[in-house]
């Protein structure tokens, strides 16, 4: 179960309390005490893919200017096989269109 340690930079025109409360309601996210506009947090998910999705979602949250990763534990993340079962699907692009 991979774990990330994060520093979330809150936009100066956003309310730190509101953003923190909203992030804290996100599953797998635990927020620490902010230092100015920099909010420490952890993010835990069942697998690397879900972790990656959750991290992207955090970066897209209203009021979040930037998310930096400072810690990554991945001892039980499986490495990529020679050819991942990833055909030339278009799901990523569909998601952005």
């Amino acid at each position: 179960m991979p774990i990330l340690g994060l520093v979330i930079g809150i936009s100066p025109d956003a309310s730190l309390d509101e953003v923190t409360a909203r992030l804290a309601r996100t599953g797998g996210v635990r927020c620490g005490e902010a230092a100015g506009s920099r909010l420490p947090a952890t993010l835990v998910r069942d697998d690397a893919a879900a972790l990656d999705d959750a991290l992207r979602a955090l970066a897209d949250e209203r009021g979040v200017l930037v998310v930096d990763v400072v810690f990554h534990e991945f001892s039980d993340v499986h490495v990529a096989p020679r050819e991942l079962a990833m055909p030339r699907d278009r799901s990523r692009r569909d998601a952005t269109s």
Binding site: M1, G5, L6, V7, R30, V44
Partner: peptide
């Protein structure tokens, strides 16, 4: 172990966030 790792992750985040 998971709790320990979460605490470790948070400690790293707090240290980085607090840094001038």
């Amino acid at each position: 172990r998971r709790e320990f790792l979460e605490q470790t992750a948070m400690a790293a985040a707090v240290a980085a966030a607090a840094r001038p």
